[in-house]
């Protein structure tokens, strides 16, 4: 694949998105180097989902430019994989697990061409990867929340993208599924791919991610987790809820992180 190695995987410049006259994102600049696993974090209404949607061209931008590996999104669309929020689709839709996963190949297939044996095989491989191979014939309404998320992830895997955007992949999944997803994301990173994740749990940032963007309508900070995931930046991003945050910020060692502490400090939408 001919990808511009020198350009960042994602480059956003001066991106502004407004609903009517209310700005949702103000003048966002962002570079995500290739091969990073990045969390987008910020309080409710900070514009995390909107940022992803604007990058993908799903909501119109008032200003700004997006580049994927050095080219415009439209030119490099084939390099991008997208995992929307689980709740954004109707899980009563009359279709099977395998069929949903095959949808990840529709972009590569282009218009009119139907998925065939090859797409089916790719979908099965992806389902095996997420531990859902036994469910391939299942009607999607029979899946639990965690299983739905795994199916969405398998669908992203068959896209075989270089840059993934995932909107809250840990939303409403059990701890086991969360760890399985994290392993998968790390595997993608090891293959040199870039993964951008909307994330909520301050507790797990350092375990899961190596790159972070803190967002609250404006970009508060972006860079490596070790440099930018600081109490000051969190205070800037989350504003008034500082007391609550102080215990989590790395500047303060706080109580030992035991298993019981997991999920504590999770900021819910």
């Amino acid at each position: 694949m001919s990808i511009d190695d020198k350009a960042p995987a994602v480059r956003v410049t001066d991106l502004t998105v407004a609903y009517r006259h209310r700005p949702v994102l103000w003048d966002i600049d962002l570079d995500v180097p290739a091969g990073k696993l990045m969390a987008i974090m910020g309080p409710n209404g900070a514009g995390k989902t909107t940022l992803i949607k604007a990058i993908l061209g799903l909501v119109p931008a008032a200003a700004g430019r997006v580049e994927i590996h050095g080219k415009s999104y439209v030119e490099n669309r084939h390099l991008v994989g997208y995992v929307p929020q689980r709740g954004s689709v109707d899980w009563d839709f009359p279709t099977t697990v395998l069929d949903v996963v095959m949808m990840g190949r529709y972009g590569a297939l282009g218009w009119i061409k139907r998925p065939g044996k090859r797409e089916r095989e790719q979908a099965v491989v992806a389902l095996e990867k997420v531990g859902m191979a036994d469910f391939q014939g299942r009607q999607i309404s029979q899946l639990s929340g965690g299983q739905q998320q795994r199916v969405f992830l398998a669908r992203a895997l068959v896209q075989d993208a270089q840059v993934y955007f995932m909107d809250e992949p840990f939303q409403g999944v059990d701890a086991r599924t969360e760890l399985a997803i994290v392993d998968l994301l790390k595997e993608l990173r090891e293959q040199g791919r870039t993964v951008v994740v909307v994330h909520h749990d301050l507790q797990t940032v350092q375990d899961y991610f190596d790159w972070i963007m803190l967002l609250n309508v404006r970009r508060i900070a972006s860079g490596s987790v070790s440099e930018k995931f600081t109490e000051d930046n969190l205070r800037l991003a989350y504003g008034g809820r500082v007391d609550f945050l102080q215990r989590k910020a790395p500047a303060d060692p706080g109580p030992d992180e035991t298993g019981d502490m997991r999920g504590y400090g999770r900021i819910r939408p």
């Binding site: 993908l56 061209g57 669309r77 991008v80 839709f93 279709t95 949808m103 529709y106 009119i112």
Partner: peptide
Amino acid sequence: KELKLATFDPGLAASL
């Protein structure tokens, strides 16, 4: 295929 995807998940359809 297009009708199915645009009905089930218009977001993905648009991104593709």
